[in-house]
Design a binder for these strands. Structure first.
Lengths: 125, 125
DNA sequence: GCTTGACCTGGAGTGCACTCCAGGTGGGAT
DNA sequence: ATCCCACCTGGAGTGCACTCCAGGTCAAGC
């Protein structure tokens, strides 16, 4: 059964580089269960898998669109629970998507106000 | 000198209604100097002016576009310092405007990722 | 005239999302 | 063999922006 799959593995430093999260943040995410227990080498040091990297990409995206950790945690649980939760995941993401839409619209609206203010100041210079 | 200007004045409750800030937030903003010392009636209760309302509108906008309080404070100081700071105000707002632009772009980018994820989940349902 | 409720002050507490620290272990280049 | 640096753990600390509280005053409608 000489299974010779090459499972590419990442050190903490590589993951920091790759994902842009700090090591402390990574550890924090693991501690609170947003990241599932990461594998360790014999010395107890973390060795991240490609899958971890992928999941961290999702986290990054959700986080940067303003999803609170509690909700990401809920999403993580759904993902772990298996394929029968896909409908729920869709629901969660769709709701988030609508909020992001709202955020963008609001930001565009507010930006107009800022731009107008700048124009006004320019006009009185 | 019977000066009979009608200076419309707002009670705290009216300002809360108008601006969407809580009374506590309004007091907090005054305490830290983001809002200049608000007028009081004989009983020491706040009576906001039209100008206060306008300024709170600006605050709302800057806040909702993610400007930290420290920077709003700096902007407030510039405004109070008089017209010779207009160039600085423009600089500050332009910088902020660029950041907001970046935020919007980033959000749009991330939103695409979320939408794709939703599509993917839909395809495997 | 009395009650109710809006408002006051100073200061303490909250929630979120990290971020830092002390004290220690192990791997790997020289 | 040695040294340094990445990494480990548990737990405490930080920064931001509020938010809440106790204990009190005033105004205005009934």
């Amino acid at each position: 059964m000489g299974c010779s799959t090459i499972v590419s593995v990442y050190t903490p430093a590589e993951v920091v580089e790759e994902t842009g999260f700090t090591l402390d943040t990574l550890r924090y995410y693991e501690k609170i269960g947003l990241l599932e227990r990461v594998e360790r080498n014999s010395a107890g040091q973390r060795r991240f898998t490609q899958e971890d990297i992928g999941w961290l990409g999702t986290i990054r995206c959700l986080r940067d669109t303003g999803m609170p950790i509690a909700e990401m945690l809920r999403f993580a649980e759904l993902v772990r629970a298996g394929d029968h939760t896909i409908a729920d995941r869709i629901k969660l993401l769709e709701e988030h998507d609508r909020r992001v839409e709202g955020q963008i619209d609001n930001l565009i609206e507010r930006k107009r106000y800022v731009s107008n203010k700048i124009s006004y100041y320019r006009s009185v210079l």
